[in-house]
Simulated assay, not measured.
Amino acid sequence: MLLILPLLLAAGGIVSPAFISADNLSNLLLQFAPLAIVAMGQALVMIVRGLDLSVASMMATAAVIATGFSGSDRDVATIFAVALAVAVMIGLLNGFLVTKRQVSPFLATLATMILLQGFRFAYTQGAPSGNVPPLLRVFGAGKFHGIPYNVLVLVALAIILAIVLHRSTFGRRIFIVGGNPVTGRLFGIQSDLIIIACYLISACLAAVGGLILSGYVGLVDNWVGQGYELDSIVACVVGQVSLQGGRGSILGALTGAAIIVIIANEVLLLGVPIQVQLIIKGAVIVIAAALYARKDN
Rank of each mutant, 00 (worst) to 15 (best):
Tyr216Leu: 14
Phe170Met: 14
Pro181Phe: 03
Val86Asp: 06
Ile114Ala: 10
Ile263Thr: 07
Gly91Pro: 07
Gly282Ala: 07
Thr255Gln: 08
Phe96Ser: 12
His145Asp: 13
Tyr123Met: 09
Ile195Phe: 10
Ile233Gln: 05
Leu92Thr: 04
Phe187Tyr: 15
Gly225Glu: 04
Leu135Ile: 11
Ile262Trp: 04
Phe139Tyr: 11
Ala253Val: 07
Leu115Trp: 06
Phe170Gly: 10
Gly142Ser: 11
Leu84Asn: 03
Gln244Met: 15
Gly225Val: 06
Val76Pro: 03
Met1Leu: 11
Pro6Gln: 05
Gly246Phe: 09
Leu115Asn: 05
Phe32Gln: 04
Val182Gln: 13
Thr109Trp: 10
Trp223Pro: 11
Thr61Arg: 04
Ser168Phe: 02
Leu29His: 06
Ser249Met: 04
Gly126Trp: 03
Ser202Phe: 07
Thr99Val: 08
Asn24Ala: 01
Val208Ser: 10
Arg185Tyr: 05
Ile263Val: 15
His166Ala: 11
Tyr149Ala: 11
Pro105Leu: 11
Val237Pro: 03
Ile201Arg: 07
Pro134Glu: 08
Ile147Gln: 10
Thr99Lys: 00
Met58Tyr: 07
Cys198Asn: 06
Leu270Cys: 04
Leu213Arg: 13
Ile201Met: 14
Leu93Asp: 02
Met40Glu: 03
His166Ile: 07
Ser191Lys: 12
Ile260Ser: 08
Gly41Asn: 00
Thr78Trp: 15
Ile47His: 01
Leu254Met: 14
Ala203Ile: 03
Leu269Ser: 00
Leu29Met: 15
Leu251Thr: 13
